[in-house]
Design a protein around this nucleic acid. Structure first.
Length: 374
DNA sequence: GTTGAGCGTT
């Protein structure tokens, strides 16, 4: 007897070569009539219109056929075949971007280098950041100085001068001694991009040290005694603070956050920084303490995940999923905290954090094994 | 004006 090979439709293996991107689609179309349009080319496995938060069509869609040949024919017959209502250009029917295509796009937007931040504090500064910070070897020293300052050798004036120089025009908003290194880093980050929400999350969870409360309070709209916090609260001033020429590098910002996270962890909660002691995926926290994180950078590893989320609480485990065939990250992972409170804070700080053209999705993990969650 | 969601693996 000869059985034909049964291929599960959900097989992601060759899904990309059966999946079409439909652009310049009338926003009046929904999944149902989109199916009607494409059904004549073959069996459709999956069909979905991309929508905004309000559920309105974004004028594009994905259609996945069960057979690639159907997709090929659909492309040939439908691409540029008409201009739909409300569209500025003819219908687009083409194969959807692969993960590789997306990575290329992301990198061209962010300008991120191949530098991969791993390990300790110093190593968290990727070449991309160093370049962003000013490019030269001198700046590397300045960065190192910044780190050593933050690492506990406080009040070393010469080094602080270097740090201020490093921050360029932002330095004038650092009123001398009152300022701390977290503010400096935060300024650099905020000047880069208005990540107020994300930073607010960071600030909220690190309520203990008095010097941080100004920053937290300022961002939260409360009264503050910190001039830097006041400065940060003003978007207009943020624009003038921009210390880095050459545009935004969201990936570098993420790295800076990872750095900041690590710094905070090492000072605010020394135990939380011990990445080496964190489990790698098998340990789960209590209900509501487990996060599902999507849209991680391609080269983000377990350690990066730990570094990024350690400030929010004690991490029981952190795991980035790796495709065993390609050995590449699947760009999602899990972080389990000891308690739900940490997870909640992490969500409010990090959900929506922009990296390239994507935003981090940070949600409570859904237990797919539990029918009540489906 | 254009590329989703995915939920602790092999």
């Amino acid at each position: 007897m000869h059985h034909p090979v049964q291929m599960k439709p959900a097989d992601t293996e060759n899904r990309n070569e059966r999946k079409l991107f439909i652009g310049q689609l009338s926003k009046k179309h929904n999944e149902e009539n989109l199916r009607e349009i494409f059904a004549k080319y073959g069996q459709i496995e999956d069909c979905s219109v991309l929508r905004d938060q309000d559920g309105k069509s974004r004028g594009c869609a994905f259609v996945t056929f069960t057979n690639r040949s159907c997709a090929v024919v659909a492309t040939k017959e439908m691409h540029h075949s008409q201009t739909m209502e409300g569209c500025s250009a003819p219908l687009v029917v083409k194969f959807a971007d692969t993960q590789k295509d997306k990575d290329v796009k992301t990198k061209s937007i962010s300008g991120a280098s191949a530098g991969s931040p791993k390990g300790g504090l110093l190593n968290n500064l990727s070449p991309a950041i160093l370049q962003q910070l000013g490019g030269g070897g001198q700046n590397y020293q300045a960065v190192a100085s910044l780190l050593s300052l933050i690492n506990g050798q406080q009040s070393q004036q010469p080094q602080q001068q270097n740090v201020l120089g490093l921050l360029g025009t932002g330095a004038q908003f650092l009123p001398a001694a009152a300022q701390n290194q977290y503010d400096a880093l935060a300024m650099a980050q905020l000047a880069h991009q208005n990540q107020l929400l994300a930073l607010q999350g960071f600030a909220v969870q690190q309520a203990a040290p008095a010097q941080h409360q100004g920053l937290a309070g300022g961002l939260a709209g409360a009264k503050t005694t910190s001039p830097v916090a006041a400065t940060l609260a003003s978007h207009q001033q943020l624009a003038s603070l921009t210390p880095f020429a050459g545009g935004v590098d969201p990936y570098a910002i993420q790295q800076q956050y990872a750095l900041l996270a690590n710094l905070q962890a090492s000072q605010v909660a020394p135990g939380a920084a011990a990445a080496a002691m964190v489990g790698n995926g098998d340990v789960k926290g209590p209900d509501g303490a487990n996060l599902f994180i999507y849209h991680l950078p391609q080269d983000f590893g377990d350690t990066d995940l730990i570094n990024t989320f350690a400030p929010f609480g004690t991490i029981l485990s952190a795991k980035v999923f790796i495709d065993k065939i390609t050995n590449l990250s699947k760009c999602f992972g899990f972080v389990s905290f000891e308690n739900p409170h940490s997870a909640t804070n992490a969500i409010s700080a990090m959900n929506g954090f922009q990296i390239g053209s994507k935003r981090l999705k940070v949600q409570l993990k859904v237990d797919r094994g539990n029918p009540y969650n489906r």
